[in-house]
């Protein structure tokens, strides 16, 4: 446990001193800030609609699909390429610890990006009543869905030794998950298939549930279980190096 925490600390330090992270943060705030400003105008100041619009629009999903692969692409792939992973392995740290530390560091950075947007909501709270409950559920959704996307990124990073290939693979995983929602058009309300598609649809979870203040245990369990599965698979992939 102590080794995992030590490794996590090292990962966090390297993430937050990396210029790339700060560039991502600046660009993220610029794009999401502009998106929020335009959304305020588009929804004519209706704060409930603003949450749905800011956390369910095109710009939001673009960021959500692009940032996790960028954050995770170097985490294992780069170390594999440079041979640093072998050095890490001989120190006696387990594969699971490595995976968890890297995933936790990337998730914390990803969550930090979204937390940095909260001052804008704070600014809005000076002129109107911002619903804290809805912001909680929305950011909980960002945490859970984002963690699953990052876990996919870690899995992709474990599968290849090339950062760009890893980013591409993670992006493909996440887009595939994201695109599941569009199969909903093939079914009618009441069809069990449609309910299953909604069970795995990030858009449905974010736009129809969390951004409207509805917290459904199914959403948390689906994304939580997906995160655990991806991390477990990543551990097995890493372990493969020992016996191949």
């Amino acid at each position: 446990m102590n080794r995992t925490i030590g490794l996590l600390r090292r990962e966090l330090l390297s993430t937050f001193v990396s210029p790339v992270s700060w560039i991502i943060l600046v660009l993220f705030l610029l794009v999401m800030g502009a998106n929020m400003y335009l959304s305020v105008l588009a929804v004519q100041g209706d704060l409930r609609q603003l949450v749905v619009s800011s956390y369910g629009g095109l710009v939001f999903w673009f960021m959500f699909l692009v940032i996790p692969p960028l954050v995770t692409m170097r985490s294992l792939a780069e170390e594999q390429r440079q041979g640093a992973l072998e050095v890490l392995m001989v120190t006696g740290i387990s594969d699971g610890s490595v995976i968890i530390a890297k995933w936790a560091a990337a998730s914390i950075f990803f969550l930090t990006l979204w937390i940095c947007l909260l001052p804008l909501w704070g600014a809005l709270s000076f002129v109107s009543q911002v619903e804290v409950g809805i912001l909680w559920t929305t950011n909980l959704g960002v945490l859970f869905i984002g963690s699953a996307f990052i876990a996919n990124g870690i899995l992709a990073s474990a599968l290849t030794a090339h950062p760009l290939a890893s980013a591409g693979l993670a992006f493909t995983f996440n887009v595939a998950l994201f695109m599941m929602h569009f199969f909903a058009n093939l079914f009618r309300p009441g069809d069990i298939e449609l309910l299953w598609i909604e069970h795995v649809s990030a858009i449905h979870h974010m736009v129809d549930e969390l951004a409207r203040g509805i917290l459904d245990l199914r959403v948390l369990i689906f994304w939580g279980s997906l995160t655990v599965l991806s991390l477990f698979l990543a551990t097995r992939v890493l372990e493969k190096r020992r016996w191949s």
């Binding site: 943060l25 800030g33 929020m36 400003y37 704060l47 002129v127 009543q129």
Partner: peptide
């Protein structure tokens, strides 16, 4: 829960969203 979109509010929110936060980062 609505925000009155006065010119003053638009102006200040625009600069906070586009300039202040990214500059802090």
């Amino acid at each position: 829960r609505k925000v009155e979109l006065s010119p003053q509010f638009r102006n200040s929110f625009f600069w906070t969203a586009i300039f202040v936060l990214p500059s802090c980062a």
